[in-house]
């Protein structure tokens, strides 16, 4: 069991290193010249060249990569000994955004909590709705409730997020004024306002996801409800509730946990559309802004962080397998 964890951890580290190399290479072969982007429209080639040297962009790629990695662990200082104002970028330094005049790490740490609240809230919402709906549908297999749940799920699943988001925005806020106009308030500062402004973004994301989880849970439940051990559980005289939750749902949990973990990991890397619609300064909006500005250090940083979330989610899902299924633990 410990061997399994160690192995997975090792695999995770290897993947992260590979990932950082890939991302780094990818962005250095892009046609955009990062040195050119360091100063405004009236840049002279001399200044660009000077900046290139200052940023170390004239050095070979391997050296640039080691500097970058070193920055993550030890921090780095831009313009060191260049006669210009030094820019300190403490560890973990993911680069420096010259267009926003801030270290990338700072930009990301500002954006991550927003996205985290958005992701966690909608995650709780869609899991609760999705799994409950799926269980109810499976227990009423073939009856009208099942058909109704399934067709609703299908319709909601096929609606694009921007459509659902915009409709909610227009109807709930613009038309009826039921909730305040979208903005971000940290929960520590003003919780009721935080809740009011987050409600619609949560619902928007949860709509499509809950629909997916209704269908996934139903499929799983229908399968496990047909298993022999469910018959055994009934033969023991357990209540239908215990049979459904403790025996059937528990056994069908593995694929649901897998999907949920990966979905959450993906979402933590930014919900681009919803953050745009509801004016939330999260990772998704940071990513969009940096792409529009061609702010390469930020793009690189956001990509790395988002991918890291997915890799960590994968690792957590693997660990959860062991919690769920003792057969994985022992083999």
């Amino acid at each position: 069991m410990l061997g399994f964890v160690v192995k997975r951890l090792g695999a995770m580290v290897v993947m992260l290193v590979g990932l950082s190399i890939t991302v780094f290479l990818l962005f250095s072969v892009l046609p955009a010249d990062p040195a050119r982007l360091t100063c405004g429209k009236s840049c002279t080639p001399d200044v660009v060249q000077a900046n290139r040297v200052r940023l170390g962009l004239d050095k070979p790629l391997t050296e640039q990569y080691t500097t970058y990695v070193k920055g993550i662990f030890a921090g780095r200082t831009y313009n060191e000994g260049q006669g210009v104002a030094e820019i300190d970028c403490p560890a973990p330094c993911l680069g420096y955004s010259f267009s926003q005049q801030k270290p990338v790490t700072e930009l990301i740490t500002e954006a991550v909590p927003v996205t985290m609240w958005l992701a966690l809230g909608s995650f709780v919402l869609w899991m609760a709705i999705g799994v409950t709906g799926g269980v109810i549908a499976s227990l009423n297999r073939g009856r009208w409730l099942d058909v109704a749940l399934q067709s609703t799920a299908l319709v909601l699943y096929s609606l694009p997020t921007f459509f659902v988001g915009l409709i909610m925005l227009i109807v709930v806020i613009v038309q009826f004024g039921l909730l305040p106009y979208p903005d971000y308030y940290p929960p520590t500062q003003d919780f009721p306002k935080f809740f009011d402004t987050m409600l619609l973004p949560w619902l928007t994301i949860a709509t499509a996801s809950a629909a997916f989880y209704v269908r996934l849970t139903r499929t799983q439940m229908v399968e496990t409800l047909g298993e022999d051990y469910i018959r055994t559980a009934r033969a023991k005289g357990l209540t239908e509730r215990a049979v459904t939750v403790k025996h059937a749902l528990r056994a069908g949990l593995t694929p649901i946990v897998t999907a949920a973990g990966l979905d959450l990991g993906l979402l933590l890397g930014g919900a681009i559309i919803v953050e745009q619609i509801f004016n939330l300064p999260g990772v998704g909006r940071l990513a969009v802004g940096s792409v529009i500005d061609s702010d390469l250090p930020v793009i690189t940083g956001v990509t790395l962080v988002a991918a890291t979330f997915i890799i960590i989610a994968n690792f957590v899902v693997d660990l959860l397998y062991m919690v769920i299924d003792p057969r994985v633990r022992l083999s």
């Binding site: 298993e227 022999d228 051990y229 018959r231 033969a235 299924d325 057969r327």
Partner: peptide, 14 residues
């Protein structure tokens, strides 16, 4: 009470 043909599939694996 009842017992079944396949004890492996009749006992909950988890």
């Amino acid at each position: 009470a009842m017992i079944f043909q396949d004890p492996l599939s009749s006992l909950h694996p988890f």
